[in-house]
Computed example of a mutant assay.
Amino acid sequence: MKNISLLAFLVGLSLSAQAQEVVIDTNYYAPPPVRRRVILADPDDNLKTRQSKRADNRRELLDQLNEIQTWYIGTEGGFRSDGSILSNSLDGLVSSATLTKANWSVLLGYTYHNSWTIETGYTRSPIHLNITIANNADPLVFNYLNNGYGIPLRIKRRIGSGKGSVNGTGFWLTGGAWLIPNGSGQTGDFQLIGYSRRGRNRIDTLRLNNTTTVFNSVTGIAELGIDYATRLSTRFELGFYARKYWGLGDALKSDLLYTVNNGSQQQATITSNGSGWGLGLALRYIYGRQFEVKKH
């Protein structure tokens, strides 16, 4: 009987052990959670994209339009040469050189249908008169000029391949005239004395007297040239020019009297009217524009 009870107890214990749920904590051994990396668009790139789209839309709109009128302010800078006219060299004693000096202008302009332009303003470009006196290897040089300013009026016409180019680019034929109040300018008189040996015992006394005046009346300059303009942006334009100038009246005059031993006399006259050449650059700011839709 005791053996049967013991056997029943052992069987029951075995069944109870098999029925129990074994729970094992695996948190310590679990792998770390997977971190997902999410990359978002840079907001600065979005801003650049929007700005680029706006610029593209603006260009597309401008491509569909023609400039029919523009207004601009500009400045020019370059070099201008002008010479003098000598009537008598006084036996090679006197000459007159062509001078090349810097000049600048401030201008206002109006362009119509990208074909015609008119501009005016203020230019600083004196008219010069040069007297060079031979003196062995070291000549004496005297330079005179008028008050230095003028009021130009210039008309331009688009020519050549530029006529069919995009707005603001191409070649222009230019012509115009300057109004020049001569004013007082820089003038002065001089007297020179020298000696010349002829033979062993003959020495001649040479005297040269000069009087230079600036005409107080108003004179002028006519010009003809060619420009090339290229549009740097919607507001700025760069230009290059070459021009020929013709004086419309004398601005300065020098009267020279040459004597030898207070006897023999010769006279000479030097006049200057501003005739010459000019080269330079122009920068223009377009402050107003009017458009029309292109006709296809």
Rank of each mutant, 00 (worst) to 15 (best):
N3T: 10
D44A: 15
S254N: 04
Y144V: 01
S264I: 13
S14Q: 14
A102N: 02
A137W: 09
A8E: 12
L232K: 04
G12I: 06
R59M: 07
T49Y: 11
I203E: 05
T100H: 10
N209E: 10
T132Q: 13
N201S: 12
P43L: 04
V260W: 03
S264E: 05
V94H: 00
T70L: 03
Y29M: 00
A8H: 04
I39E: 12
L281V: 12
A55K: 12
E21R: 13
Q186E: 14
Q64H: 06
G280S: 08
W71D: 00
N201D: 10
I226E: 07
Q266R: 06
S184C: 01
S272R: 11
L279Y: 05
I193C: 05
Y258V: 00
R289K: 15
L90V: 11
G185S: 02
N66L: 11
W116A: 06
P43Y: 09
R200P: 10
T169C: 04
K294V: 00
Y285F: 12
P152V: 03
T132G: 04
N146T: 01
L13H: 00
G274F: 06
G77L: 14
N143E: 08
I286C: 01
I85W: 12
L192M: 10
V218P: 08
G276T: 11
G148E: 07
V38K: 12
V218A: 10
A19R: 13
G162S: 00
R59V: 09
L279W: 07
